Computed example of a mutant assay.
Amino acid sequence: MKYKVRHLTEYEYTAPVALCYNMAHLLPRDTQNQRCLNRRIKVWPKPIYQSEGQDYYGNQTCYFSIEEPHQKLSIDVISYFEIQTTDFIAQAEAHPMTLGELKALLAQPNTADLRMAKEFVLNSPQVRCSKPLADYAQDCFSDDMTLIQGVKAFMHKVFTEFRFDPTSTTVATPLEQVLEQKSGVCQDFAHLSLGCLRSLGIPTRYMSGYLETLPPPGQEKLTGADASHAWFAVFIPDFGWVEFDPTNDIMPTDQHIVTAFGRDYSDVTPLQGVIFEGGDSQTLSVSVDVQRV
């Protein structure tokens, strides 16, 4: 399956910004079944400096600085992807490892992959392990279940017990509040999953990217109607990272496009940086369009 993704981000300020320095996680990355065919990023006003690189996790980054006064900032990214459909999910579902076996391997990590995976059991800036989070997920796992079966049961539990409500949270809403009110958006469900599964000792990382949405039968797809999406992945030793989408209760295949992954949202924020002046407020507008090509 081939896709074209356009991600347009615009900021408008109440007063001119004198200068700004930014880092963007908006460029695509290659994965086991995903390949970027082409991409371009256009920043306006034109930066005095712009360069691309990779962060600690191998995500593609773009650094730029603008040193002319401006009241509007625009970052327009167009990327082309090819995603191969494989039997990876079927292989993952057949994997026999249990939670107990995973924890035993992590207790004495004797490979580079195990040592790297342990980083995703630790607390991160926006996700902290706790007993209430562990208790919420504990009943999804048992001695006679495989790890994948347990994580699928947990994903289904989040899907059925939580309500999607864009007005109930912000990027700073604590996990304890999300757990109590049982509502939020995909980022909240991903962070909640990270907190619960890490609290049980399961290496879990935050996935950021896009999800193709299809219009109802007989209706045209609206330009810009798609959105950035978040889900999570767990580590299976000697197998790899397996992805889960609790917002939709599915294991991602060829409709999830990965942009970046990290410990939590703070590692893969689409745009972060520093501005000088710009007034006391700003307006953010984001448009995402995912098309099959």
Rank of each mutant, 00 (worst) to 15 (best):
Gly218Cys: 09
Thr213His: 11
Asp254Ser: 14
Gly224Leu: 15
Leu197Ala: 02
Gly195Met: 06
Phe239Thr: 09
Gln219Ala: 12
Asp249Arg: 08
Ser228Asp: 09
Ile236Val: 15
Thr253Asn: 09
Asp254Leu: 03
Phe235Val: 06
Thr204Leu: 03
Asp249Phe: 06
Arg198Thr: 05
Ser208Lys: 04
Arg198Met: 08
Gln219Asp: 04
Asp226Asn: 11
Val234Tyr: 00
Trp241Ala: 07
Pro216Ala: 15
Leu192Gly: 04
Glu220Trp: 03
Ser228Glu: 10
Ile236Thr: 03
Pro237Thr: 07
Ala233Asp: 05
Glu243Lys: 14
Ala227Arg: 08
Phe239Cys: 10
Tyr210Lys: 10
Lys221Arg: 15
Pro216Glu: 14
Leu197Asn: 01
Tyr206Ala: 06
Pro217Thr: 11
Pro203Leu: 00
Val234Gln: 02
Asp249Glu: 12
Asp226Ser: 13
Phe244Arg: 14
Met207Lys: 02
Leu211Ile: 09
Leu200Phe: 04
Gly209Cys: 10
Asp238Arg: 12
Thr204Gly: 00
Arg205Phe: 14
Ala227Gln: 11
Met207Ala: 08
Gln219Phe: 13
Thr223Pro: 03
Pro216Asp: 11
Gly218Met: 07
Pro246Ile: 15
Ala190Pro: 01
Thr213Ala: 13
Val242Gln: 11
Tyr206Asn: 04
Arg205Leu: 09
Pro216Phe: 12
Tyr206Pro: 03
Pro252Phe: 13
Pro217Phe: 09
His229Val: 06
Gly195Phe: 09
Ser199Met: 05
Ala225Cys: 12
Phe235Ile: 08
Gly209Phe: 08
Met251Gln: 15
Ala230Cys: 14
Val234Trp: 01
Asn248Ala: 09
Glu220Asn: 11
Cys196Ser: 13
Phe189Pro: 01
Gly195Val: 07
Leu192Lys: 01
Leu194Arg: 03
Gly240Asn: 08
Gly224Ile: 14
Phe189Lys: 03
Pro217Gly: 03
Ser199Leu: 08
Ile202Asn: 01
Ala230Ser: 15
Pro237Leu: 09
Ala233Gly: 14
Gly195Cys: 10
Trp241Val: 11
Pro216Cys: 09
Leu200Arg: 05
Val242Met: 11
Ala230Val: 09
Leu192Pro: 02
Ala190Met: 06
Leu222Ser: 13
Ala233Leu: 05
Ser199Lys: 02
Thr213Phe: 12
Asp226Leu: 14
Leu214Gly: 00
Ala190Phe: 05
Ser193Ile: 01
Ser208Arg: 05
Ser193Gln: 02
Leu211Ala: 10
Gln255Arg: 15
Leu192Glu: 06
Asp238Glu: 15
Cys186Ser: 08
Val242Ser: 05
His229Thr: 06
Asp238Leu: 07
Tyr206Glu: 04
Gly201Ile: 05
Pro246Phe: 08
Ile236Gly: 08
Glu220Tyr: 08
Tyr210Ala: 11
Ile250Ser: 02
Pro252Leu: 14
Leu194Glu: 05
Cys186Val: 00
Ser193His: 03
Ile236Gln: 04
Arg205Ile: 07
Gly224Gln: 14
Gln187Gly: 09
Asp226Arg: 09
Leu222Met: 14
Ile236Glu: 01
Leu197Val: 02
Ala233Met: 04
Ile236Ser: 06
Arg198Asn: 10
Gln255Leu: 14
Phe232Asn: 00
Ser228Ala: 13
Asp188Gly: 06
Ser199Phe: 06
Pro203Met: 00
Ala190Val: 07
Pro252Ser: 13
Gln187Glu: 13
Met251Val: 15
Pro203Asn: 03
Trp241Cys: 10
Gly240Arg: 06
Ser228Leu: 12
Gln255Lys: 15
Ala227Asn: 05
Leu200Gly: 01
Leu211Pro: 00
Glu212Met: 13
Arg198Ser: 07
